[in-house]
């Protein structure tokens, strides 16, 4: 479904993302981890469309989208839930979800209303649909951020540390939610908390120094000596 080849992004002398290849199929749930500065967030913003890549190709369902601006990327089928929820404080929750349904998913009026309500219900926000987003607590704002991304009906859903700052039971609710959202789409989830990814992401990608280091089934990658090495600083992985 999504095929990225040689994605590269440089900032001056620094290569933040260095020739990364990534393939995603519907139903994939990919955890993306790596130490600080590994290039996870930059890769995510290349996929989301904040900036065009300096090199590389990026094809979604046979259509090259590497140079589409952000809003066109959303319409093409890639949506991101940001680490810090980017909600519309002076709009109701329903309106928050309606906007991406209308403009991202490009649904006609009635269908957009129904879809927005459905997404809110899916994210456990149905009872608050009429209240203002500005009045929400952190967990609900994270849920709304997810709802906004899902309401755009993306083929690829990018999650940028959506569990950060939450307690373990709260993370569990977000995990259950992501499980439900995986249907028919691919999910790429950047997270520092392995607990959040385990069980939800069947596949794990490890980045280090801008390059993709490991990519495979969760448990296999998780116990890989290289992973221990880059996280623990152990020379030859014997700590595993």
């Amino acid at each position: 479904m999504l095929v990225a080849r040689g994605l590269t992004r440089r900032f001056g002398m620094i290569t933040a993302v260095d020739a990364v290849d990534l393939d995603l199929a519907p139903g994939d749930a990919v955890g993306l981890i790596g130490p600080n500065g590994a290039g996870k967030s930059t890769l995510l913003s290349l996929l989301a469309g904040d900036a065009p890549p300096d090199a590389g190709s990026f094809v979604l369902d046979g259509r090259s989208i590497a140079h589409l601006p952000l809003h066109a990327r959303v319409r093409a089928g890639i949506a991101r839930a940001a680490q810090i929820p980017q909600t519309f404080a002076r709009l109701t929750l329903r309106e928050n979800a309606l906007l991406p349904a209308q403009h991202g998913a490009r649904l006609p009026a009635r269908a957009a209303q129904l879809w927005a309500d459905e997404v809110l219900a899916l994210c456990g926000l149905a009872d608050k649909a009429g209240s203002m987003a500005g009045a929400l607590g952190l967990l609900d704002r994270k849920r709304l951020e997810l709802a906004k991304a899902v309401a755009a009906r993306p083929r690829v859903l990018l999650l940028d540390e959506v569990a950060a700052g939450l307690t373990e039971p709260e993370i569990a609710t977000i995990k259950a939610l992501v499980d439900k959202l995986r249907d028919g789409r691919a999910v790429v989830w950047v997270e520092h908390i392995p607990f959040a990814l385990r069980g939800t992401c069947a596949r794990l990608v490890v980045m280090d120094k801008g390059a993709k280091l490991l990519d495979g089934p969760f448990d296999e990658v998780w116990s890989h000596p290289d992973l221990q090495r880059i996280y623990m600083g152990v020379a030859d992985g014997r700590a595993a």
């Binding site: 989301a48 952000l70 809003h71 959303v74 403009h103 998913a105 906004k148």
Partner: peptide, 9 residues
């Protein structure tokens, strides 16, 4: 920025 992220041109 969030409006653009929701697909608004």
């Amino acid at each position: 920025a969030a409006a653009e992220g929701a697909g608004v041109d």
